[in-house]
Nucleic acid binder design. Structure first.
Length: 843
RNA sequence: GCGGACGUGGCGGAACUGGUAGACGCGCCAGGUUUAGGUCCUGGUGGCCGCAAGGCUGUGGGGGUUCGACUCCCUCCGUCCGCACCA
């Protein structure tokens, strides 16, 4: 046989099977009611986060879709009806910025990328139901994004409001809170600026509690993702209390989690952005000083202001407000350590029991009053010079209130309830819950996005575009450059329209939607992608939802994953869908690095999947990214590692072709082989068991693959002694077919090829049920007994599996290496773990 | 500062409920096949001592529980991630 015929040629094999899958539409899943739909099969919705099509897919995509595909295959071969779709999150800034630079329409560059992604997904052999392919930039898709926007608008979940917003000067658009990281634009890293603008918002805050409670409805989400969302939503319980400025007849409500310390509030602080600062300072002697401070604070970056280590700054306003608890008139300050976008933008300051207030009081020489004393505190030692040396922030169970009038002696927990009730009776406060979460700002002053389907009418105000006029198509423009307002402003023919309500002249909304809106419902459109009456049919969606396994990067822990959860809840409330949560199980993959660093074009350390697929094959590339380590962890790409996997797949391929040549096809493994045949058969069943368990135990693909490697190694070691008799030959054949079967989720082409070679073509591997380990073959006649003396291993003995404890002890003591260590000592204890070990404790 | 994850050979990583530490792969060493290189096949490979048999030692440091600890507890150190003046 010539060399050429003996070589594993992935390109040939992969092309062959990809053609079969394409022609037979193997991976298309029927909807309920479609021909071929089997109501008896359990369903599985396996989904990877849809890609943003830019350039070519990178290794992160390769890993994401390799993981998802392995899961899809595994479930199919467990008899499930699997839907595994793909689409593109096609709107977005990079394509638009590219258009500004090159003049190429974003649609053109985006669709070029989509073609490249689509081609490579096919090259990788990912088992995608292409009949469900969608892209968010097509009118067929965004028509329904608009339709859903209008449903939210009707439910008062979408609204327009003037608010302090984050503006990214580089991207020339406003951003959602979630898109601002450390005061910078999450996309481009530019410092964001505060602006007051009227913008479109989604009322996600209305769902704050449910977004927290419904974590209970999820089956398996990474704990850190839940924690991140929980912190982001930031629910805290406390009270609102009203501090009145009698002089100006102004009431200030503050939020506090410590109503028990109300009597300790010795001053009052407003954020520089607080709208009432102007009224408070007007006419006071240091009006100018306050104004300057406020202006300086507004100019300071969020990072500067956010620096906790920085010394507190602030300025006094010559006014007082009344502490509702004790009637004290307390001074008022403006200070930038109070944030406008949390609570009410004003606080009661309790320096005795809050570190920040303490620091501020210390600097400005303000009263510090103790109102909580630690349990069993000696009053003499508590504040020896009558002053608190540091704030007491604990709330121990035995702590008691002091200096708090009728509430003295209560614990903080009791005092909270009583003081809230007391405030309530006087109309000066109430129980309150505060969230850190803000509403989702969805409008963007950019071109390449889904148009917001409303018009502005001089007579009727904001008017929704009627459903039958959707989609509001995105018009072509000459110039994409943002100028502080959407480039769509220049499309005058499009902007000028008539009001659907009164027929008068009206202007279209020129802002477009945040692309996270597009991706908040795409998983529903996959289920019914050709529906021209509705975004999706509820019955079909209810059949497939929720997503049984969602796979993607942890970078979407808050943004996409929280927005999609909100959308689904809003849709459920509108009666459009029957689930409360979109993603029942979530798996977040770790990032692949190279030379220990994140891959980037600037560093020149990128890995091109295309290049590896061409050189080593898709099966190698896919198997390697799953073999690098546990998929939820990151890993460093090593060329030698990829080559090692290629070597393994080659070995399996060569084993397949040798077995096909030297043994007779068909035939089951022998019932009860002896010697090496028995050994190999047992190894095959061990591999089935190990691979299946590790697959199910949190997708431990690295050890699944290593089990198959062991099976292949064992086959190589034993094969030459087995070909000569029928039982032996059948065993080698079975072992090889098993290896092919088990590697299939990762290397589907090779798996199919080897299977066809050694089993035959009647049943293709993807139609074959996942193998089951025979318990009889997992059990062994003998086991390795580990013998320890004082916990140190002194011997390993092959002993019969059923041997009683007494016999194990006898065998252990009889061993010369063991007895050598028992000379001159007495055994004080004998520990026997059946099937495992004997430990002799001697003195 | 708060919250979370983690720390095992030269490297990536295994080790189910406490019971043989280092599976599998990379790298390295040796042998075989080959005209040679590569490929491929076989064997070896934590460290120290020893020709060997074997012994000692070893999972970030220290301490503890236990017959027995990578695994459990305490403490310290380090790395990574998230949040960070949230009242």
């Amino acid at each position: 046989m010539s060399d050429a015929e003996q070589r594993y040629e992935p390109r040939k094999i992969e092309g062959k099977w990809q053609r079969v899958w394409g022609e037979e539409r193997t991976w298309e899943a029927p909807n309920p009611g479609d021909p071929g739909f089997d109501p008896n099969k359990p369903k599985a919705y396996v989904l990877e986060m849809l890609p943003y099509p830019s350039g070519e897919p990178h290794v992160g995509h390769l890993k994401n879709y390799s993981i998802g595909d392995a899961i899809a295959h595994f479930r199919r071969r467990h008899g499930m009806q699997v839907v595994h779709p793909m689409g593109y999150d096609a709107f977005g800034l990079p394509a638009e910025n590219n258009a500004i630079k090159t003049g190429v329409h974003p649609r053109v560059s985006t669709e070029r990328s989509i073609a490249s992604f689509s081609e490579q997904f096919r090259d990788w052999g990912i088992s995608i139901d292409w009949s469900r392919e969608i892209s968010s930039h097509t009118p067929e898709y965004y028509r329904w994004t608009q339709w859903l926007f209008l449903r939210l608008f009707e439910q008062d979940l979408a609204y327009r409001e003037e608010a302090a917003v984050h503006w990214c000067p580089k991207d020339a658009t406003v951003l959602a809170n979630e898109q601002v990281v450390d005061g910078r634009c999450e996309r481009c890293g530019t410092l964001v600026e505060p602006r007051r603008l009227e913008q479109w918002m989604f009322r996600i805050t209305a769902y704050a509690d449910r977004l927290l409670e419904d974590f209970d409805l999820l089956e398996s989400w990474p704990e850190n993702v839940i924690t991140m969302q929980r912190n982001w939503i930031g629910r805290s319980e406390g009270a609102e209390a009203v501090f009145r400025c009698a002089e100006l007849d102004l009431d200030f409500t503050v939020f506090t989690t410590r109503p028990d310390t109300l009597f300790g509030a010795t001053f009052f602080v407003l954020a520089p952005e607080h709208p009432d600062v102007e009224a408070l300072m007007a006419g006071t002697e240091n009006e100018e000083e306050v104004r300057e401070y406020v202006n300086a604070a507004m100019r300071a970056s969020a990072t500067e202001r956010g620096d906790e280590a920085r010394e507190k700054t602030g300025v006094r306003i010559a006014r007082t407000v009344t502490n509702p608890a004790n009637g004290d008139e307390i001074p008022v300050f403006v200070a930038d350590y109070v944030l406008m976008d949390y609570g009410t933008g004003a606080i009661m300051a309790v320096p005795g029991h809050d570190e920040r207030d303490f620091d501020f009081a210390h600097k400005f020489g303000l009263d510090v009053r103790r109102v909580v004393a630690p349990a069993d505190a000696d009053p003499a030692e508590l504040d020896p010079d009558g002053e608190m040396g540091e704030p007491y922030v604990d709330q121990g169970t035995g702590d008691v209130l002091v200096n708090s009038g009728e509430f003295d002696g209560l614990t903080p927990a009791e005092a909270k309830q009583k003081i809230i009730a007391w405030l309530g009776e006087r109309g000066a406060g109430k129980l309150a819950v505060n969230f850190r979460l803000r509403d989702w700002l969805l409008s963007r002053q950019r071109y390449w996005g889904c148009p917001i389907p409303v018009v502005h009418c001089g007579e009727c105000g904001i008017v929704a575009v009627p459903d039958d006029q959707l989609p509001v198509e995105l018009p072509d423009v000459e110039d994409y450059k943002p100028k502080g307002q959407s480039p769509l402003e220049t499309a005058t023919d499009w902007v000028n329209t008539t009001c659907p309500k009164c027929g008068g002249a009206a202007r279209r909304e020129t802002d477009t939607m945040d692309t996270f809106v597009d991706s908040s419902w795409y998983f529903l459109r996959y289920l019914d992608p050709d529906n021209s009456e509705l975004p999706f049919d509820r019955e079909i969606a209810d059949y497939w939802m929720g997503v049984d396994q969602y796979i993607g990067g942890v970078e979407h822990a808050i943004l996409h994953l929280m927005y999609a959860r909100f959308f689904v809840k809003a849709l459920a409330d509108g009666g459009y869908i029957g689930v409360q949560e979109p993603f029942t199980n979530l798996f977040t993959q770790g990032m692949i690095t190279r030379d220990g660093a994140k891959m980037s074009k600037a560093k020149g350390n990128t890995v091109s999947p295309r290049e590896y697929v061409e050189r080593l094959g898709a099966d190698t590339a896919r198997t390697y990214v799953c073999f690098m380590g546990p998929p939820e962890r990151g890993g460093d790409w090593l060329d030698e590692g990829a080559e090692g996997v290629h070597r393994f797949l080659s070995r399996l391929w060569r084993l397949g072709s040798e077995v096909a040549e030297r043994t007779e096809p068909g035939g089951r493994p022998p019932e009860s082989p002896e010697g090496p045949a028995r050994e190999l058969l047992a190894k095959a069943h061990w591999a089935i068991d190990k691979a299946t368990r590790d697959f199910e135990r949190g997708f431990q693909f690295n050890t699944v693959i290593s089990a198959v490697m062991e099976l292949v190694n064992e086959s190589y070691r034993l094969k030459d002694g087995l070909y000569d008799d029928a039982d032996g030959a059948a065993t080698v054949r079975f072992a090889t077919a098993t290896a092919a079967s088990l590697i299939f989720p990762f290397a589907p082409h090779l798996g199919c090829e080897v299977w066809e070679q050694v089993v035959g073509g009647e049943q293709r591997l993807w139609e074959v049920p996942w193998p089951q380990a025979d318990p009889a073959l997992l059990a062994h006649d003998t086991f390795t007994l580990v013998v320890q003396v004082n916990g140190k291993v002194r011997a390993k003995l092959e002993v019969p599996s059923g041997a009683p404890e007494a016999e194990l002890l006898e065998l252990a003591k009889a061993d010369e290496h063991v007895s050598a260590h028992l000379d001159g000592v007495t055994i004080v204890k004998e520990i026997v773990v059946p099937g495992k070990l004997v430990n002799l404790v001697a003195r």
